[in-house]
Design a protein around this nucleic acid. Structure first.
Length: 303
DNA sequence: GGACCTTTGAAGTTC
DNA sequence: GAACTTCAAAGGTCC
């Protein structure tokens, strides 16, 4: 099973090479939103709505993470002039650099048939956006006070599962029960970014196409497909992510990503660093060799 | 039971 | 302000 998975993932990735030119040093290309407060015309654009929701800590252009992964690809930032009226602060920004992952660790079986199933353009040029169906954007019952009172998907108990809290009859000190209450307080999750929204939407399709279930392998494929998307297709997800963040801010005004820091326990700092430097165990329990150099890029045969 | 793996992006922290 | 870190999702695997 593993062998099959490994071989099939390899096949798929070999047929999903990065676009031509990927891996070479990026040719100078002005980032569309490198200065987020500037519109394409150099005029700051800040709608009242955005001003209301904008982060107090504008995010700089995302750091180039190539140091971790070693390879660059030229900017593929979508032209969002048609999508974004809000271009200041952290919202509505797009990465000005992206990087290609290390050589594939999770090859695929030939049955994956990626060529036939490579995501085709979903809409004709100029066609309206497909209706967004991501649950967390379907306001309705998520809104506090809404009769249905179904919690927003971003809210989960610390266990990660929705569960009823039984009445605690135990005799505990106030401090203890307070600490326990704090620990049991539902966690408000981070809003999903563009890629996460894309993964959610496409995961089932990839699983159906490929003989795969392992998320790590699927995510590698999805990462490749994400890079292969057109600007317009990516822009759709950036826009959805922007709406997600807006909605999230609306629902949880005081929330900060920091609130969830430290909630995931890591086994050890060292191990985690290993995991980002190549000397790690993969999802199959094996230890892939550290990639000394980026994989050679093959000509783009799809698209 | 929960960390790990894997991906990208947003946001937080550190220097 | 650059660089680094953490966490979002997912599910099989392993400790």
């Amino acid at each position: 099973m593993y062998k099959e998975t490994v071989y099939s993932a390899f096949n798929l990735l070999m047929h999903y090479p990065p676009p031509a030119g990927a891996g070479q040093h990026p040719s100078p290309q002005p980032p569309l939103h490198s200065k987020a407060s500037q519109s394409p015309h150099g005029v700051p654009q800040l709608s009242p709505l955005y001003e209301h929701f904008s982060s107090p800590h504008p995010t700089p252009a995302p750091a180039d993470i190539s140091q971790k992964q070693g390879v660059h690809r030229p900017l593929q930032t979508p032209d969002l002039s048609g999508f974004y009226s809000l271009t200041s602060g952290s919202m509505g920004q797009l990465p000005h650099t992206v990087s290609w992952p290390s050589p594939p660790l999770y090859p695929l079986s030939p049955s994956c048939g990626y060529r036939q199933h490579f995501p085709a353009p979903t809409a004709a040029p100029g066609a309206p956006y497909p209706r967004f169906t991501h649950p967390s954007l379907m306001l309705g019952s998520s809104v506090p006070g809404h009769p249905a009172a179904i919690p927003h998907p971003a809210i989960v108990p610390p266990s990660g599962k929705q569960e009823l809290q039984p009445y605690d009859r135990s005799l505990k000190t106030q401090a203890e029960s307070k600490a326990e209450k704090e620990a049991k307080k539902p966690t408000i999750k981070k809003p999903l970014n563009a890629f996460m929204l894309y993964m959610k939407e496409m995961r089932a399709k990839v699983i159906a196409e490929c003989t795969l279930k392992e998320s790590a392998a699927i995510n590698q494929i999805l990462g490749r497909r994400w890079h292969a998307l057109s600007r317009e297709e990516q822009a759709k997800y950036y826009e959805l992510a922007r709406k997600e963040r807006q909605l999230h801010m609306q629902l949880y005004p005081g929330w900060s990503a920091r609130d969830n820091y430290g909630k995931k326990k890591r086994r050890s700092r060292e191990k985690h660093q290993e995991s980002t430097t190549g000397g790690k165990r993969n999802a199959f329990g094996t230890y892939p060799e550290k990639a000394a150099a980026p994989a050679p890029f093959l000509p783009m045969t799809v698209l």
